[in-house]
Write a protein that binds this DNA or RNA. Structure first.
Lengths: 235, 235
DNA sequence: CATCGGATATGGTCTGACCATACTGTGGTC
DNA sequence: GACCACAGTATGGTCAGACCATATCCGATG
């Protein structure tokens, strides 16, 4: 038998080491959104690596919605810590949908799960419904399917936000972003948007009235209407 | 007034152009997991950019769990398309938890939402419970909190997987990964794991018996026990 | 005091080189 | 013919140094 001695699965690449250092520094120094990271050249010298490796680490952090890089000089320049999971999640889902690693029905089911949960919570908590009402009004004035979907997205994201949980809100926004195309198609296929608006009014009323069961039912019925082909999966 | 002529909000960086090209190529050529991307040098030449820019784009795709790079030569070498949203999601959540952009209670609440939903679906679908049973047995033989949490994570991820929805499964895995530390602390604080095991048996039985309501209740009670400080948020 | 223009710090890109890794093919050995 | 050792080579990983684009800062100038 040849040499099957154990070798480490994978040598840690330099930029991963940089990532670990930065992450360590964040948790150690208690950095939060708004704080600045050292400049790329400076970081490279501190860690004893090349600027390329630092840059690749920065790309990763930027992809994850943790830093935002800005050229130039001054307080706003450089790599600033942010907290923007939404766009990162949206990119992630969009790419995996495109890769056929995920199917639309899985995304829609997940969305239904979140939305029922959020609608119930929002109703229980008697959450502020002004954002919902604004989006509802926006849909009424929409002239194209794209415009309608825009406000529809805002409406449904407002439901998730009203639950008070930022994580579900972020997931919701990403789900909507990644399935925008299909939403437009669904609206075009339906033609008339008035049934959708009736649903929306029912949802809005239930949340405002603080009726979690009715809110959850209304959301379920609404998604069954918007995505009839997936109906059988919503018990 | 100075020149207020319109400038594009932000000049698209080169590597973003590369990203768009690759993404376009994926959806256009119908590439799926397992297919190979051109080599970095080759891609750089094709797109008329430097290898650095291609590499930064690769880092982004790798971060999103879409490609996996492997040095060397042969069929497995180079940038291969994969579909691994789990690790990407886990990194994302972990970093945002560290940045205080998210709070633990939001993560736990989201986990409860998914787990109730998944338990109900798994019970309804009479899903295969062998993975659940195996993880349950693993917990019984665990000797340290870390080991217990390891199998506990497998158990709860198996619930999410049993729902048949890969997206919720991936989210579940990421949530568990990102809160592993807190889970270990919770087990240590509890000391005795037998109440947890009793819960697990109840969940397992309910799913195997195809009783969605009981499964959802069992999961809810279980998380209330494991995270007592968050109990008031689980109506 | 106001304004303009260079100095400067920052990220963005490119080039070319070298290293580490892992397969490929070739040639020798048994 | 089967097997094995070794050079060849394509791939990603890293580095160094240069230059460009952008945005602020600051001093000179009117």
């Amino acid at each position: 038998m040849t040499d099957t001695r154990w070798r480490p699965v994978k040598r840690t690449r330099t930029f991963e080491e940089v990532l670990a250092q930065i992450e360590h520094r964040i948790s150690e120094d208690g950095l939060t959104a708004g704080d600045r990271l050292p400049a790329e050249r400076q970081l490279a010298e501190q860690l004893g690596v090349s600027r390329s490796s630092v840059r690749e680490a920065m790309r990763v952090l930027e992809t994850l919605g943790v830093v935002s890089s800005q050229a130039g000089r001054g307080p706003d320049a450089g790599a600033v810590l942010v907290s923007r999971p939404d766009t990162a999640l949206a990119d992630l889902l969009r790419l995996h949908l495109g890769l056929a690693g995920l199917e639309l029905r899985e995304v829609v089911d997940t969305r239904l799960m979140i939305e029922r949960w959020a609608a119930g919570h929002a109703a229980t908590a008697r959450a502020d419904t002004s954002a919902l009402a604004a989006a509802y009004a926006g849909m009424a004035g929409a002239r194209t399917p794209e415009e309608f979907v825009e406000h529809d997205t805002a409406f449904h994201c407002a439901i998730a936000d009203a639950s008070g949980n930022r994580l579900t809100g972020a997931i919701m926004r990403s789900l909507r972003d990644s399935m925008r195309r299909y939403a437009v198609e669904a609206v075009e296929r339906l033609g008339d948007t008035s049934p959708l608006q009736a649903d929306h009014e029912r949802i809005l009323t239930a949340i405002a009235a603080g009726d979690p069961e009715e809110a959850a039912r209304a959301v379920t019925d609404h998604l069954a209407l918007a995505y009839p082909s997936l109906r059988q999966e919503t018990p």
